[in-house]
Computed example of a mutant assay.
Amino acid sequence: MKIIVVSDTHMPNRGKELPPVLIKELKKADMIIHAGDWNNLEVYEMLKEYGRVEGVYGNTDEQEIRDAFPGKKVLQAEGYTIGIVHGDGNGKTTEKRAFGAFEEKPDVIIFGHSHIPYVRFDHRVLLFNPGSATDKRKQPYYSFGILELGDDLRAQHILYKNKE
């Protein structure tokens, strides 16, 4: 199973359209996960053209996103448990807040908020932040993630300089 993972799209402020490199991968996705800061439902409408979309709201999301998505979610896919949370809050690092959001630890925790691509195991849990496909901030590249679930668990970032 191929899951495209995005977060912090901040659209339309940080882009009017999804980047072509992201669209290319969305066309091959079995599922799409958004870890918050969509900013409005138009992003959901764009993503759902490519398949099933799961997600959570982030700290900058409008009420319509908060009404449509929870702040935290756990789902099952291909025998894996995936937790999704934005990761905002006070104190600790974004990674520690995301890890601490789940009492029962899933196999994977997908989070956003920092706009920094991140992949690391912590206590046998894969922590995965896709970065941002449209708002790289101080990062050298825009990014999103690909999570592949099967006999093996694979996570990778797709990095690119131009979002046009």
Rank of each mutant, 00 (worst) to 15 (best):
M1H: 06
K2C: 05
I3K: 05
V6H: 02
V6R: 04
S7F: 05
S7K: 02
H10I: 11
M11T: 11
P12I: 11
P12F: 13
R14I: 06
G15Q: 09
G15C: 12
K16F: 11
K16W: 11
E17H: 15
E17P: 08
L18S: 13
P19S: 14
P20L: 08
P20Q: 11
L22V: 11
I23Y: 05
K24D: 15
E25T: 04
L26Q: 08
K28P: 01
M31F: 12
I33F: 06
A35G: 12
G36L: 06
D37M: 11
W38T: 13
V43Q: 12
Y44F: 14
Y44D: 12
M46F: 13
Y50I: 06
Y50Q: 06
G51Y: 08
G51T: 06
R52M: 11
R52A: 12
R52K: 15
V53N: 03
V53G: 05
E54W: 13
V56A: 09
Y57H: 14
Y57E: 03
G58L: 09
D61H: 08
D61I: 04
E64L: 01
R66S: 03
D67F: 09
F69I: 08
G71A: 05
G71I: 01
K72C: 04
K72T: 10
K72N: 03
L75C: 09
L75Q: 05
E78M: 10
E78H: 14
I82T: 08
G83N: 02
I84F: 06
H86R: 09
G87N: 03
D88L: 02
G89I: 03
G91E: 06
K92Q: 12
R97N: 03
R97S: 00
A98P: 00
F99S: 01
A101D: 02
F102C: 04
E104T: 14
K105Y: 01
P106R: 04
I110A: 08
I110F: 00
F111S: 01
F111P: 01
H113K: 02
H113P: 00
H115P: 10
H115C: 11
I116R: 14
Y118Q: 02
Y118S: 00
R120T: 10
F121A: 03
H123Y: 00
R124V: 00
V125Y: 00
V125F: 00
L126E: 01
L127R: 00
L127C: 02
F128P: 00
A133K: 09
T134Y: 05
T134A: 09
R137A: 08
Q139D: 13
P140S: 10
P140W: 12
P140H: 09
Y141I: 13
Y141K: 14
S143N: 10
S143C: 09
F144A: 12
F144D: 10
G145Q: 03
L147G: 15
L147W: 07
L149Q: 04
L149I: 07
D151I: 06
L153Y: 10
L153E: 08
R154Q: 10
R154N: 14
Q156R: 15
Q156I: 04
L159K: 15
Y160N: 03
K161M: 11
K163H: 11
E164A: 10
